[in-house]
């Protein structure tokens, strides 16, 4: 009897394991545990046995039945993988319904926030200033002499003799220094204005981010390291930078910072005008006259400042060839930035 039970159990387990689908599994169940099943037949035959044998065989049969039921359940779960009853008949290929359709963030704002985040990680706080600015803050305090050709670098929208639309985010430097004593490490993002006609690479309104660090002994080497850290974080580890001497009235020494072209790796392409380098920012050491305008004592502090165009970086990053696309607010443009955080 015991042997029969054991053989039956082994055969049934093998059949359960071999069942390829739910119908085959059901056939196995019926053939073993069904009303006319082999195990059911043995159970029925128990009454013909003696007490002792009935007890032993009964225990063995029940154990085998439990095993088989467990195996059936497990196999069923395997085959069905939790599938709901087929009878519901849902068409699960229908399109889904999102809780809300997807909107997007403007690429300029995205880039601006990304850059602020990187500098935040480097210990820079964030501030802003007015877009309608005094000539004093935009030029005079930044060491642009009156009636000096340096003012021609930027075509300025004037409201009147004393008031203008800021041509750069740099005036926030002076406002910040007037308010606070060093050590300072800040970035100032924002909108700036130039009095010029729009074309594929110029817009009369665009965005800049300015950085300022002032302390007792901040050096040009610190500037280089800061720029390199930023470029590494934002553009990736393999982008070397170089400093080219330049002129800005409010910094001295002044430099323009080039980054090796990220599109061609420095070999030369259309974006870098075959030169292999992309100009990404202007920078330099804060000019003593700017410290003086801010009311800091001569010689006490040194500092560096840098400024870069957000639009240009966004265009580079996303392969946008015409700056005007950034300001047209066409959804066919904006929708492409869905999911960009």
């Amino acid at each position: 009897m015991q042997e029969t039970i054991e053989r039956l159990r082994a055969e049934a387990l093998a059949a359960i394991g071999a069942a390829a689908d739910e119908a085959a599994l059901e056939a196995v169940r019926v053939s073993v545990l069904g009303r006319k099943g082999s195990l059911t037949g043995l159970l029925r035959g128990l009454k013909d046995l003696g007490d002792e044998a009935r007890r032993e065989a009964g225990a063995a049969l029940n154990a085998a039945k439990d095993d088989l039921n467990a195996a059936l359940t497990a196999r069923e779960a395997q085959l069905g993988a939790g599938r709901p009853a087929a009878s519901s008949g849902y068409d699960l290929t229908l399109p889904g319904r999102a809780p809300a359709p997807s909107g997007s963030l403007h690429p300029l704002q995205t880039v601006l926030e990304e850059i602020c985040d990187i500098f935040h990680g480097m210990g820079f706080s964030r501030d802003d200033g007015p877009e309608v600015e005094l000539d004093y803050y935009n030029f005079t305090a930044l060491n642009f002499p009156d009636d000096h050709p340096a003012r021609d670098i930027q075509d300025t929208f004037y409201i009147n003799d004393k008031v203008l639309l800021r041509t750069q985010t740099s005036p926030v430097q002076v406002r910040m220094m007037e308010r606070r004593e060093p050590p300072l490490a800040c970035v100032f993002p924002g909108r700036v204005y130039r009095n010029e006609n729009a074309d594929a690479s110029h817009s009369s309104e665009f965005f800049q981010i300015e950085g300022l660090v002032v302390d007792r002994a901040v050096s040009m080497a610190d500037l280089k390291d800061t720029v390199d850290t930023f470029v590494r974080n934002y553009f990736g580890a393999s982008a070397p930078t170089r400093f080219r001497p330049h002129y800005f009235p409010f910094t001295e020494p002044s430099v323009e910072v080039d980054m090796q072209c990220i599109l061609c790796g420095g070999k030369g392409c259309g974006t870098c005008k075959q030169g292999g380098w992309l100009e990404i920012m202007g920078a330099g050491m804060v000019h003593p006259n700017v410290f003086r305008a801010a009311g800091y004592p001569d010689d006490r502090y040194t500092g560096f400042a840098f400024g870069m165009g957000i639009d240009r970086i966004a265009m580079l990053k996303y392969g946008i060839s015409d700056i005007r696309l950034l300001y047209e607010n066409d959804l066919r443009f904006l929708n492409q930035f869905r999911g960009v955080q």
Partner: peptide
């Protein structure tokens, strides 16, 4: 500035960048 120009700006840096003590707080 003249000394920087002629001395060359290639060798600058390598000191790890300026870090402001205490870090930044988001407004």
């Amino acid at each position: 500035e003249e000394i920087a120009r002629i001395h060359g700006l290639d060798q600058l840096g390598g000191r790890g960048g300026y870090r402001v003590a205490g870090g930044a707080v988001r407004r």
